[in-house]
C-alpha cells in the first residue's frame, strides 16, 4: 500500500517537473497586458492572434513551416532507398552509408551545424534560404531511417516470396506490397522529422541565421531584447503541434514498437 503510494508520488512529481514550465508559459500567454506575470492578469487570446496578424511573426511561422515540410520530405526521400537497399540486399559495405545516416543525430548538434556553416560559406551559398532545407533534411535523416528500418523488418517475408513466385519483379513488389505495408513508417518518420525541424535552432541559425528567421530563431532574437507574450503563445502552439502529431502516430501506429519495445509473446 505504502509502496504504491510512493510510486504514484514519484510519477506525479515527474509529471509536475515536466509540465511546470509549460504551464507557466501557457499562463503567461493569456495575459491581457504585455507583461510577464503568472497567474495571468486578465484573459486574452491576442497573443495567439498576433502570431498570425503581425508580419514578422507570421513570416517566421511560414518560414518554419516551409523548412519543416521541405526538410522532412527530403529526409524521407534520402532514407527510403537506403532502408530498402539495406533490407533487400546483402552488402556489408552499405553499413557505412547507414552509419553516416545515423551519425548526425548522435554527434552534438553544434558540430553538424558548424560543418554546414563551413560548407555553405565555402560553396558560396551562405544565407540562401534553400540551404537550411538541405541542412535539416540531412540532419534529420536519422529519424525516417530508423522508422523505415523497423518497417522493413516487420514486412512478412512470405508475402514477398509469394509475389516473387507469381512472377512479380522487384519494382512490382515494391509498389504493390512493400509500399502499402511501409506507409505508416514513412509517415511517422516524416512526422518526427517535421516536428524536430520546426523546433531546431542551431543548424538553422548557422545556415541562414542572418537572412531567414524561423520561429526558434525569432524567439531567441527577441529574448535578447526582453519578453513579449507572443513568445509564450508560440511555445504553446509548438507544444500543441507536437502533442497532436505524436498523438496521431500513437493513434494510428504502434508507438511503443517504434520506440523499440516489443511484446514478450512476439519474440519467443
Amino acid at each position: 500500500m505504502i509502496n504504491r503510494f510512493v510510486l504514484r508520488l514519484f510519477l506525479a512529481a515527474m509529471a509536475l517537473f515536466l509540465s511546470a514550465p509549460l504551464v507557466v508559459v501557457a499562463g503567461v500567454s493569456f495575459n491581457e497586458k504585455k507583461s510577464l506575470s503568472f497567474p495571468p492578469e486578465g484573459f486574452s487570446l491576442d497573443w495567439y492572434a498576433q502570431i498570425f496578424t503581425e508580419d514578422s511573426w507570421r513570416q517566421a511561422l511560414f518560414n518554419s513551416l516551409g523548412v519543416a515540410i521541405g526538410a522532412s520530405s527530403l529526409s524521407v526521400i534520402i532514407a527510403f532507398p537506403l532502408a530498402w537497399f539495406l533490407w533487400r540486399f546483402h552488402a556489408p559495405w552499405a553499413r557505412i552509408v547507414q552509419v553516416l545516416g545515423l551519425a548526425p543525430f548522435i554527434l552534438p548538434p553544434v558540430i553538424t551545424a558548424l560543418g554546414f556553416l563551413s560548407f555553405w560559406t565555402t560553396a558560396g551559398a551562405y544565407g540562401q534560404p534553400w540551404t537550411v532545407v538541405i541542412s535539416h533534411g540531412i540532419f534529420f535523416v536519422t529519424l525516417p531511417l530508423v522508422t523505415l528500418t523497423l518497417g522493413f523488418e516487420a514486412v512478412d517475408d512470405s508475402l514477398v516470396e509469394a509475389a516473387a513466385t507469381m512472377g512479380a519483379d522487384d519494382r512490382t513488389i515494391l509498389r504493390t506490397i512493400i509500399l502499402p505495408l511501409i506507409l505508416p513508417y514513412i509517415i511517422s518518420g516524416m512526422a518526427f522529422a517535421f516536428v524536430l525541424s520546426l523546433n531546431e535552432y542551431i543548424v538553422a541559425y548557422m545556415a541562414v541565421g542572418f537572412t531567414v528567421e524561423t520561429l526558434p530563431i525569432k524567439i531567441f532574437n527577441s529574448l535578447r531584447y526582453g519578453y513579449t507574450p507572443t513568445m509564450a503563445s508560440v511555445t504553446v502552439l509548438f507544444v500543441a503541434v507536437a502533442i497532436v502529431v505524436f498523438g496521431l502516430i500513437a493513434r494510428f501506429g504502434d508507438l511503443p514498437r517504434l520506440l523499440g519495445a516489443w511484446r514478450h509473446d512476439e519474440d519467443s
Binding site: 509529471a15 515536466l18 514550465p21 509549460l22 516536428v195 524536430l196 523546433n199 531546431e200 535552432y201 542551431i202 526558434p216 524567439i219 531567441f220 529574448l223 511555445t235 509548438f238 507544444v239 507536437a242 502533442i243 505524436f246 498523438g247 500513437a250 508507438l255 511503443p256 520506440l259
Partner: peptide, 15 residues
C-alpha cells in the same frame, strides 16, 4: 510516451 516525445522535441530556445 506522447508527452515525453513532445517535451523532447521542444527547442532548446523554448526550454
Amino acid at each position: 510516451l506522447v508527452f515525453l516525445l513532445s517535451v523532447l522535441s521542444l527547442s532548446e530556445v523554448l526550454i
